[in-house]
C-alpha cells in the first residue's frame, strides 16, 4: 500500500555559510501510513520542531523531498499545503484569532480547502453543526459559541485549536508540544481528545512531546531524534515492552522534564 506521508533524505541547514551554521535535519527519511500516530521525542535542538516545520512548509527544505498522498509538496507554499495539513502549536495563542468568536474561528477552519468568496462566513446550519460537535468535546465550549476566544482558558483554547485543526479532515495532523503550556488535568483532556481524533479519521498524526510517558502511552509508533537524525524507531512489540526507565537508561537523556 502506498504510504500517506513519505519523507526522503530531508536536509535542513540554518545560517549556511556563516559561523552560526547549524544542521538541524540531516538526511532524514520517514514513512507513515494512514491511521499512524507517531510520537516524536528528543532533546531540545534535536530537530523535532524543524522537522514539523519543514513538513508544514514554514521552512523550505534544503535537500530531499516530501510527498503527501503521492503529491510532491516539497516546494509548495505553506498556505497551500495547509489544505491537507492540520496544525496545533505549543502556544495556545497561536492557533486562533483571539478577537473573533468561537464560531467564527471554527467557520474559518471549516472552510479550509473550500472556495472562499462572498458566501456567508457562517450559516445557521454551520452553527448547529459546530454546536453539536463542540458538545462532544466536553469542554463546555458549546454554550460560549458567540464569545471571543480571548476569554477562554488555555486548555479550552487548545482543545478548540485541536478541533479546528481536524474539522476540515486533513490528511496529516502536526502537533508541536501542544499540551506543554497546559496544567496536568487540561493536558490529559487535550491528549485524550487528540487520540480520539487521530484514530477516528483517516489521517496520520505526528506529535512532538517532552513527556516520555505520553510518548509511549499515546500513538502506535515512537521515534527518538538526536542531532537531526532518527536514532531510535519503536513499533509493535518493541514499543510495548519499552518503559520510560529503559528509554532513559538507553539514551542517557539529561533532561529532567522528560521523566515526568
Amino acid at each position: 500500500m502506498e504510504k500517506l506521508l513519505q519523507i526522503h533524505n530531508l536536509k535542513k541547514v540554518f545560517g549556511a555559510g556563516t559561523i552560526n551554521e547549524k544542521t538541524a535535519i540531516r538526511d532524514l527519511s520517514l514513512e507513515l501510513s494512514a491511521g499512524d500516530f507517531l510520537t516524536v521525542i528528543g532533546n531540545n535542538g534535536a530537530g523535532k520542531s524543524t522537522l514539523l516545520n519543514c513538513i508544514a512548509g514554514v521552512f523550505p527544505a534544503d535537500e530531499g523531498e516530501i510527498l503527501l498522498d503521492g503529491r510532491n509538496i516539497t516546494k509548495m507554499p505553506e498556505y497551500k499545503r495547509a489544505a491537507y495539513i492540520g496544525r496545533v502549536f505549543q502556544d495556545p495563542l497561536k492557533g486562533t484569532a483571539f478577537d473573533m468568536t468561537i464560531e467564527e474561528n471554527l467557520a474559518i477552519a471549516a472552510a479550509k480547502g473550500k472556495c472562499r468568496g462572498l458566501q456567508p462566513g457562517i450559516t445557521r446550519a454551520d452553527k448547529k453543526e459546530f454546536r453539536e460537535k463542540l458538545a462532544s468535546l466536553g469542554m463546555e465550549l458549546e454554550d460560549k459559541m458567540t464569545q471571543k476566544v480571548k476569554l477562554l482558558s488555555g486548555g479550552q483554547r487548545q482543545a478548540l485549536t485541536l478541533f479546528m485543526a481536524v474539522i476540515a479532515e486533513p490528511e496529516l495532523l502536526l502537533l508541536d508540544e501542544h499540551t506543554a503550556a497546559l496544567d496536568p488535568a487540561a493536558a490529559e483532556k487535550v491528549l485524550s481528545l487528540t487520540e480520539e481524533f487521530a484514530y477516528g479519521k483517516k489521517m496520520c498524526t505526528l506529535m512532538i512531546t517532552h513527556n516520555m510517558k505520553d510518548s509511549l502511552h499515546y500513538g502506535n509508533r515512537t521515534i527518538l531524534m538526536q542531532d537531526g537524525k532518527i536514532v531510535m524507531d519503536l513499533e509493535g512489540e518493541d514499543r510495548k515492552n519499552m518503559t520510560v526507565e529503559k528509554l532513559v537508561e538507553k539514551f542517557s537523556i539529561d533532561n529532567d522534564r522528560m521523566l515526568l
Binding site: A82, G95, D99, M100, I108, A111, G113, R116, G117, P120
Partner: peptide, 22 residues
C-alpha cells in the same frame, strides 16, 4: 461577514492561523 471577510478579520489577529487555515 463573508467567508473571505472572516479570514480578512483574522489576518490582523493572527496571521499564522490564517496560513494554517490555507
Amino acid at each position: 461577514q463573508t467567508r473571505i471577510g472572516f479570514v480578512f478579520r483574522a489576518t490582523g489577529d493572527n496571521e499564522d492561523m490564517v496560513r494554517a487555515a490555507g
